[in-house]
Write a protein that binds this DNA or RNA. Structure first.
Lengths: 280, 280
DNA sequence: GCTTTTTGTTTGGTATCACAAAACTCTGTT
DNA sequence: AACAGAGTTTTGTGATACCAAACAAAAAGC
């Protein structure tokens, strides 16, 4: 076994980071929080702890590249996130082959079960949503693209953890921790491991109000030709509409669509891929 | 009429920009071009004209915030656009109220005509795609979100220009110019103006192979309650499937859906909004 | 298997430039 | 008409982003 470079890994050392860029990125996040109405220069400067002049220069730079768009003039001027971010964000998602291929499957799945469906990947230990298909009538859940979800409290996260070698899964969980999101969140490492065993056993994961109260998710993995999980798909519904029987029905449908997707990518069926984990 | 601050507008003066941030943004664009396979540190540094050490520090900063994701280890390490960009990009689009409301309409429209449909806004003088619904069987056109399209050679662009006061439209065209994209592109300002008149007259715009050869688009505006255009919707098809009659049929369907969307946003019907332009 | 090459990582030193403070110019309000 | 509040511009300076070069370590070549 290889030594774990615990404190030695200086790659993320603050010394090798560019401060000015860090502050500039903080500004983007701040603008993200500002939302639709945008933010005013003065407020943004205060929020960053920078002077108006410095903030102004950063905003101008962003603006000239389309990363920030300005609306209004004079004292009513407001800054918002710009469309270059949309372009790059779309590129980032397009880089994941799964995103493109999964969309038709998601739409078919959503049409069949009338529930919102999503596709996610494991990125830096977090489950990140890279595609979604909203159900027409359904409640609009917070399924923003690029959203980081905790791996231990989401169906996509747990299914991908379950597909990983257990040691790797534990390493990820050590990083993210097991923060409590609702009274139903599994915050005990032993309990979570037996839940992961259950995922491997039945071939899908269930998030039973563990991330959001009243919301149940079912998810399972998409596999490549070597049997590695490249991502996961989930469907989301309300707890009240989710009896034991219905859950199994939905899981069967989900697995059928996911297997179709895996096959479409030239990967292994879920049945075979999960079986590999059971022998190990 | 107000004086146009031609050279006076010093807001975009290079002096008030942050160089280091500009270079860092160049790096993002470079990574965007690198695409799926990502880029290597050495290549990125060369592409930027920066030293490896500087590029490394920038990448670390991005990486720590999720704006860049690294794959591989050692000499096979590669950097790609990260998922934080997807998150912020999605936020940027969500900031446009039109994007959310338009999606169901786009899907309905696409289902009815079996053609790819898109919704765009006018941002900094360019038409920017903020939503799309791909037709299942159709050729996949380049309809990436956040993509900037020239206003004079796209259906969405021309319809939004036509809805603007003519002076404003001309100001935008002075900025963007009328670059030739295909042999059919209208590069003459007089000719374009009479085309815009035609848009106002019939209530929709046609891009007849003006942006891409063999591709025809029909587009029209979405209006708010004051009759201002907040965006535009278009459908895209192949020239070969686009007879004069079929074009008028499709335009009628497009206008019907767009009007429904305008109404849904509490705005004016296209019929009324375009009529306002005719009297002026 | 050893060497060579090529990669990412780390180190100081320095000239650059990102930043703060304050003056200025508007626009919208009282 | 005066004020208050915003965004914009100026200038100087201390922090820091950058380069060059050395280092480590994995891949490629013989």
């Amino acid at each position: 076994m290889r030594e774990v470079n615990q404190g030695k890994n200086a790659a993320a050392d603050e010394r090798y980071r560019v401060q000015s860029l860090g502050r500039a990125l903080d500004l983007l996040e701040l603008l993200g929080k500002a939302g639709r109405d945008g933010g005013r220069l003065t407020d943004l400067a205060n929020g960053l702890g920078l002077s108006k002049a410095a903030t102004y220069a950063i905003l101008q730079t962003y603006h000239s590249r389309g990363f920030v768009s300005a609306i209004g003039e004079g004292p009513t001027k407001r800054y918002r996130l710009g469309m270059s971010l949309a372009r790059l964000g779309d590129m980032a998602i397009s880089n994941i082959a799964l995103a493109d291929i999964a969309m038709p499957v998601l739409r078919a799945l959503t049409r069949e079960v009338s529930l919102t469906s999503r596709v996610a990947i494991l990125d830096e230990g977090y489950a990140v949503v890279i595609g979604r298909a909203d159900a027409p009538g359904a409640v609009r859940f917070d399924a923003a693209l690029g959203r980081r979800e905790l791996p231990h409290s989401s169906a996509v996260g747990k299914s991908m953890l379950a597909a990983l070698p257990r040691a790797q899964a534990l390493a990820i969980l050590r990083e993210t921790g097991l923060p409590r999101r609702t009274p139903h969140t599994i915050t005990n490492l032993i309990a979570l491991q037996s839940d992961l065993d259950r995922v491997v056993a039945r071939g899908y994961a269930v998030d039973d109000e563990e991330d959001t109260e009243g919301v149940v998710c079912i998810g399972t993995c998409v596999f490549d030709r070597t049997g590695n999980a490249v991502g996961a798909i989930s469907i989301t519904g309300l707890k009240q509409n989710s009896s034991e029987d219905r859950q199994e029905q939905l899981a069967a449908i989900l697995v059928r669509h996911t297997d179709q997707l895996s096959r479409h990518m030239g990967g292994l069926d879920g049945r075979d891929a999960w079986a590999l984990r059971r022998v190990a």
